[in-house]
Structure formats: C-alpha cells, structure tokens
C-alpha cells in the first residue's frame, strides 16, 4: 500500500467533488448539502482502496498504478451504488428521483477531476449522454464503465497504449 496519506487525499478529493455538486445545485429545490463528516464517505474511501488493490493485483499493473480512466471508473462504480442520502442531506420533501441529481453532479466532478477534463474541450452531446447514464441506476459492469471512461479519453484526444488492431 502506498502512502498512508493517500486515503486522506482521496477523501479530500471526494469532499471537493461533493461540495462542487452541492454548490452547483444550491438554487435547486432539493438544496443538497454535502455531509463532509459522513462515515459513509470513509467507507467509500476504504472500498475504493480495496477495489483498486483487487483490480491492480488481477491485472498486474506496473508499480501498482492504474490508468486514469480506470481510476475514474472505480470511483463511478462505487459512487453510483451509494444512496444519495449517505453523502448529502436534502430538504425533506425532495422526491427520491431527484436525490440522485446531487450524486450525478458529484460523479461529474470526479470524472472531470480524475481525467483532467478541460471544460472548454467538452463535447456537449457526449457529456449529455454521460450525465444520462450517471442519473440512471448503477451500472452493473465495471468493464463497461472502464470502456466508457476510456472512450471519453479517446474522444478528448489523449494518447493511449491500448493496442489497435
């Protein structure tokens, strides 16, 4: 395992993304507030570490490091399974269907941060599609999320070392 501070950084990153989502929705009737001290957040960071180690050991990454699109996929895989109430508080009359909005906005921030996406280069149609998926039920297959994240990287013109046939 790498630096013990790493989980602190991962947590801080998720807090930043959650706060960015809450800020983005401050005018929304659900008024989400990010629960910075949530124990669920600690559980997510732990789960991320476990899943990451599993992923790395299965695929034998050099130096135990993962490509960015996989890191993003792991975060999405975990966050998309997290009930929004675990990370945000809402006004009590917020319909269940609208609570995922905050989570989707948070996942958007995670993808932007991990993949270092420059907002100026975003293709709006592609981003709409991504958000459609984030608003939906959790994807069941990590491989497909990896694919989606990788496709996004390819679209953004990031060189990749996945072999072309």
């Amino acid at each position: 395992m790498a630096s013990p501070y790493l989980s602190v950084w991962r947590r801080s990153f998720l807090v930043t993304c959650g706060q960015a989502a809450a800020k983005g929705l401050e005018d929304h009737p659900s008024k989400p507030v990010f629960s910075e001290d949530s124990l669920h957040l600690d559980a997510i960071v732990t789960r991320y570490g476990e899943l990451r180690e599993q992923f790395v050991s299965q695929h034998g990454m050099v130096g135990g490091l993962l490509a960015n699109h996989k890191v993003a996929a792991l975060y999405i895989s975990i966050l998309s399974r997290t009930p929004p109430e675990h990370l945000f508080t809402f006004t009590h009359e917020t319909p269940i269907g609208e609570r995922r909005l905050a989570l989707a906005a948070m996942m958007n921030a995670v993808v932007l941060g991990v993949l270092q996406i420059d907002p100026a280069t975003v293709n709006e149609a592609l981003q709409d599609d991504l958000e459609y998926c984030l608003l939906k039920e959790p994807p069941s297959n990590l491989e497909w999320i990896c694919f989606g994240m990788h496709a996004l990287c390819r679209h953004l013109g990031r060189p990749t070392n996945i072999k072309n046939y």
């Binding site: 790493l6 800020k23 983005g24 929304h28 909005l101 989707a104 906005a105 941060g113």
Partner: peptide, 25 residues
Amino acid sequence: IDYKARIAHVQASQDYLTARAKRMA
C-alpha cells in the same frame, strides 16, 4: 495521481460543473 492538482482543477471548474448540474436538474 496528484490529488492536490485534481482538487484545484475541480474547484477551478466550478462554473462549468454548476452549469452541468443545472442542465441535469
């Protein structure tokens, strides 16, 4: 991953993230 840089990037992109959140809403 340089999380410090990623955090700064997310914070710097707040306007964009807000626009997307509103669009999703």
